[in-house]
Structure formats: structure tokens, C-alpha cells
Design a protein around this nucleic acid. Structure first.
Length: 496
DNA sequence: ATCGGCTCGCGCAA
DNA sequence: TGCGCGAAGCCGAT
């Protein structure tokens, strides 16, 4: 009945579907978009099967530790796009006081034949879904739309290396690339009762008013973390970004590590908030390359080269989008320690701990780091980009992390600082991928790399001097360094 | 400019 | 049991 592969569907609770429900409710929590969204597609199938309309709830709560004007602005921009597409079927809701939103899902579910949601191993979402499953008296189905590989098509233990995971992908992925397994580009196009608006109890609307036109300044948020410039949120902006990236994709192979070049995709924030899906990014690239699924052959030995049978640039980018991104999801879905120091490999913790009492020639408090007040101008510039733009250039982010290890009193504190700064300031913080890149800095998915050094032990070392030797960092320093003039138009006027 | 060594663990071939 | 291979490393020798 469902057009979504069964391996992506998970029934969360024991409650049956409700006879006499007025709509099928899609509780949109991770895939905050209306295109290429298998959860929405499944909800639509269920609605069609019952002759019912769809209702889509997209809520934005205040009750999590990193709630800030930055993330709120980003998500609300996406609500604008989703409202455009969904019309009467859309129930956007932004909490005005902490706890105000409690009960909305259950209230809407009381008239639902079935509730569908996203199954994503991201931040607090698994706990949220589990709790909802217990509370609701109607069936809740969670749908895994995270990546090309369904999360459940892998062993129950997480992959320790990208190499091992890549080998698994090379064996397992081909059937999931087939057209019939692929998400529909526009699930709303296949909606049978699209003209019938779902009837929502007016008492619910009175208590939890629909809408997203809120005064951000009045909300209890972390306002020091302000909206970013250059990265407007939402599916429309995400697709504009994707088009731009594909248009200049030729430079990706050579310039992706060049801090001054705009050669990377910049899609990570959109992927994190679900404003675009991995399948959509894959499709855009495949179209550009004239690539078709039959070019991938089952087999392969885990090597990065010559797997996709695409250009060098495409192979490199797909290794990011598929291998590394989905490795992060694989680990996040299977390792409860994936976001903690204790989740690092044994050899990495051992070698760092053997050097825990080494003298630290430079030591900074977390506040000094957060303010970008170190002796290292390149590092300070990276921190400033993170504070102001909500991201750090891919290559410099590694250096940024390595120095936090070098300048922290202990490896455990280094890990916690990395996570805290990234969770708070990065648009794609709190994502499985963020924990992958932070973990990599401290040896995760990497190997020991001599010679043994103070503080680092056998953790792979990086230095600002070498980075400056390999890449042209002058334009980056001019943009983000100490003496740089503030870029214009940083005010958050979008949502005033 | 380019190259090997540093060093560990995995999966597969033998 | 050996072997190839691995997100971006650094360093010194040629």
C-alpha cells in the first residue's frame, strides 16, 4: 500500500489506527520540506487509502538547550516556504513561552486516523518520538528519510571506519538507487483528496494559534546567537544554493580545501534542518554528470576511487554526501556514546590520556576561545566565521578543532568545548555529521599518525603555519580576521 | 616538488 | 597469516 520501501517504516507504538479519523497527520520534525520527503509520501499514501486529507504539523519549540534566534530564524524561513506549498493542510506553530506547545500534538492526534513522523537519529528527536509513541492513543509510524541507505540496512553495530562503511555501501546501496525505491520528487502531486481541507477543532486553533509570524526578539531565546547573513533558511533557499553549487561544480575537485574559494556546497545547514534531502542533492549532481544508477556496480573493496564511475569532482563530493554523511547517521543511530568523549576509539583516548599532564604552552578558557581571543589569528578568524556565519570552512574547521585539543587542559574538556561551541553556533551543530567531524579531530574514524607529539600523542596533528603554507589564507583573514571590516547587512531584519 | 616513514585495524585472499 | 588500504597529517631527505 505504501509507495515507501518497508525498510524505511517503523511502527512506534501498539495503538491501532483510529476509525473515523478526520485526517492523516504528518508531524514534521526532521524533514522540514514538502518535496522528496518519504515521510510525507507515506502519510499521503495512508491518506489516499482512507480517502482522507492530509494535515501537516510543523512545530518549533523553545524547550531545548540551544534554542537561539539563529536557529529559529532559519526554521521559520522554511515555514514560510512550506506554507506556500501546503496551504490549508499546514499547521505551523511557534511556541511563545516555554511549555506552551505541550499537548498540541496529542490534541491534533485525537482526530487523526494515523500519525506519521520522521525517524531521525538527530539531537533530541529520538526521545521526542519515543515519548509521543507512549502518549498517543493512535498509531504512530516513523519514517527514515535520512539518506540513500536506509538506516536499518546495516549491521546492528556501528561502523568504526569510513573504509568499512564504504565497503558496505558498495555492496548494499545499488537496489536503493533504483527508481522504485527513490522518493517521489513531489509527494503532494499524488494526493487524491487535495481539494478537501482537513477540519481542525477550533478549540485547538484557539489555544495553539497557527502561524509563524512571531517577534523573535520577544521570545526567550539565546539572542547572542543571532540570525546569520548569507544563509537564508528554507527549501527555496536550499535549492537556490544547490543550483549555484552545481553550476560551479567544476571547481570542486581542485578548490574544495581552499579557504578563500567558495567551492564547497554549503548545503550542510539545509540538510541538517531537512530543508533539502540527500536524494535531491544526489539527483542534481547526477543530472549534471549525465550519471545513471546502472553505473554503480555491486562489489568494491572500500576504496574511494572509481566506485561511482563519475568525474573526480563528483566522486569526491559523493564521498562527502553519501559515505561520510551517512556514516554519521549510522553511528548516531547505533552508538549511544556517539556524541561523547567516551565514544572515541580506545587507542585515541589512551594516547591523549597518556599526554594529559603534558604542559600546555597555550591554555585558554572556553570563554576566551568562544570570544576568539587567542594568539593565533587564523584560529580567531575561524571562530569569528563560526560566530557570525554559523559555519567554518570545511578545511579550517579541522584545524580549529585540533587547536582546541592543544589549548585545553584535558582531552575530555577539549571534546566538551568542541561540542559546546559547535552545538551553540553552527547551523549544522547537533547533527550526526557534526559529531563525526568533531570526533575526527580527536581520532574518531581516523588512525594513529606519528610521530608521537606532546599533548596529541598519536592523534593526527595540524598546524596553522602549514595550513598557511598549503593554502592561500590571506583573503580569509581579510574577511574574518581581526582587522576585517564587518560585512554589511548582518541585521536580522528578515523576521522583524 | 615529491617521497617515504610514522602506526593501527579491518576485511579479505590465501 | 599476510596484505592492501585508509578525510584532509607532519617532517626530513632527495
Amino acid at each position: 500500500m505504501s509507495t515507501v520501501p518497508a525498510i524505511r517504516l517503523r511502527t512506534v507504538n501498539d495503538a491501532p489506527p483510529r476509525a473515523g479519523g478526520r485526517y492523516v497527520l504528518y508531524w514534521m520534525i526532521a524533514a522540514r520540506r514538502t518535496r522528496s520527503n518519504v515521510a510525507l509520501q507515506h502519510a499521503r499514501d495512508e491518506a489516499n487509502a482512507r480517502g482522507l486529507p492530509l494535515l501537516v504539523l510543523e512545530a518549533l519549540g523553545l524547550d531545548h538547550p540551544w534554542a537561539s534566534a539563529r536557529f529559529h530564524a532559519f526554521v521559520i524561513a522554511g515555514m514560510r516556504d512550506n506554507a506556500e506549498r501546503l496551504g490549508d493542510r499546514y499547521y505551523p506553530y511557534v511556541e511563545r513561552t516555554v511549555g506552551e506547545g505541550k499537548g498540541l500534538l496529542a490534541a491534533l492526534a485525537r482526530d487523526a486516523a494515523l500519525v506519521v513522523t520522521d525517524d531521525a537519529p538527530v539531537f533530541h528527536l529520538p526521545r521526542l518520538v519515543a515519548a509521543a509513541g507512549k502518549r498517543l492513543d493512535v498509531r504512530l509510524v516513523a519514517v527514515d528519510g535520512n539518506g540513500l541507505l536506509p538506516l536499518r540496512d546495516a549491521p546492528s553495530t556501528p561502523f568504526p571506519t569510513a573504509y568499512a562503511f564504504r565497503r558496505h555501501l558498495q555492496k548494499t546501496l545499488p537496489p536503493h538507487l533504483a527508481r522504485e525505491s527513490w522518493p517521489e520528487a513531489d509527494p503532494l502531486a499524488g494526493e487524491a483528496a487535495s481539494d478537501a481541507a482537513p477540519t481542525v477543532d477550533p478549540k485547538i486553533e484557539a489555544r495553539w494559534p497557527r502561524g509563524f509570524d512571531v517577534d523573535l526578539a520577544a521570545l526567550p531565546l539565546d539572542h547572542a546567537v543571532g540570525p546569520v547573513s548569507g544563509f537564508p533558511g528554507g527549501p527555496v533557499a536550499a535549492h537556490a544554493r544547490l543550483r549555484g553549487f552545481v553550476a560551479r561544480f567544476g571547481a570542486y575537485a581542485t578548490d574544495r580545501n581552499e579557504p578563500s574559494a567558495d567551492a564547497t556546497s554549503g548545503l550542510s545547514p539545509y540538510l541538517h534542518f531537512g530543508h533539502i534531502g540527500a536524494h535531491e542533492v544526489f539527483d542534481a549532481l547526477a543530472a549534471r554528470e549525465g550519471w545513471t544508477a546502472d553505473r554503480v556496480k555491486a562489489g568494491g573493496n572500500g576504496s574511494r576511487e572509481g566506485w561511482w564511475h563519475a568525474s573526480a569532482a563528483a566522486e569526491g563530493f559523493l564521498d562527502q554526501l553519501v559515505t561520510w554523511r551517512e556514516l554519521g547517521f549510522n553511528v548516531a543511530s547505533r552508538d549511544p556514546l556517539h556524541a561523547s568523549y567516551d565514544g572515541l576509539p580506545g587507542w585515541a583516548r589512551a594516547t591523549m590520556e597518556a599526554h594529559a599532564t603534558d604542559p600546555r604552552p597555550h591554555a585558554y578558557t572556553r570563554a576566551q576561545l568562544e570570544a576568539g581571543q587567542t594568539h593565533d589569528p587564523l584560529w580567531n578568524a575561524a571562530m569569528r566565521q563560526l560566530r557570525e556565519e554559523g559555519r567554518i570552512h570545511n578545511y579550517l574547521r579541522m584545524l580549529w578543532g585540533k587547536k582546541i585539543l592543544e589549548w585545553s587542559p584535558s582531552p575530555r574538556e577539549a571534546y566538551d568545548t568542541l561540542v559546546a561551541l559547535n552545538d551553540r553556533w553552527a547551523l549544522d551543530g547537533r547533527d550526526p555529521n557534526s559529531y563525526t567531524s568533531i570526533g575526527w579531530v580527536l581520532g574518531k574514524h581516523d588512525r594513529p599518525w606519528g610521530p608521537e607529539r606532546p599533548i596529541f600523542g598519536m592523534i593526527r596533528y595540524m598546524s596553522s603555519d602549514n595550513t598557511a603554507r598549503k593554502y592561500d589564507v590571506k583573503p580569509y583573514l581579510a574577511r574574518w580576521g581581526e582587522g576585517a571590516t564587518k560585512p554589511a547587512a548582518r541585521q536580522g531584519a528578515l523576521f522583524g
